[in-house]
């Protein structure tokens, strides 16, 4: 596969390490009342769709960016590639 890195252009997927569902960005708050339940879901429950999936890839043999790649798991079409940092900020994460 070829992943179009937002900063570096098209790169072979062999340069990357795959992590999984981009929902891992959404780490819960530790001091919420139901933190245990939320962390359980965050850590152990994942969707595994046959189709469009947002997932985390790490450009380890490159610039060490974490990316959010929107990929169709059935066809391997890559629909969008974003810096995970930007996605995290857009979802309200900061400090």
């Amino acid at each position: 596969m070829i992943i179009s890195h937002p900063l570096l252009g098209p790169r072979d997927s062999a340069e990357f390490v795959y992590l999984g569902d981009a929902s891992l960005i959404g780490r819960p708050h530790a001091f919420d009342d139901d933190a245990m339940e939320k962390f359980y879901e965050y850590q152990f429950l994942r969707d595994n769709p046959d189709g469009v999936h947002r997932e985390l890839w790490y450009h380890e043999q490159g610039d060490r960016s974490w990316l959010v790649v929107t990929r169709d798991t059935a066809t391997h079409d890559i629909l969008n590639v974003e810096l995970a940092r930007d996605v995290a900020r857009q979802s309200g994460r900061g400090r």
Binding site: L56, Y58, W66, L83, A88, R95
Partner: peptide, 10 residues
Amino acid sequence: EFARQCLWPD
């Protein structure tokens, strides 16, 4: 790097 970029980007 994951923690820095994805969890606490700022």
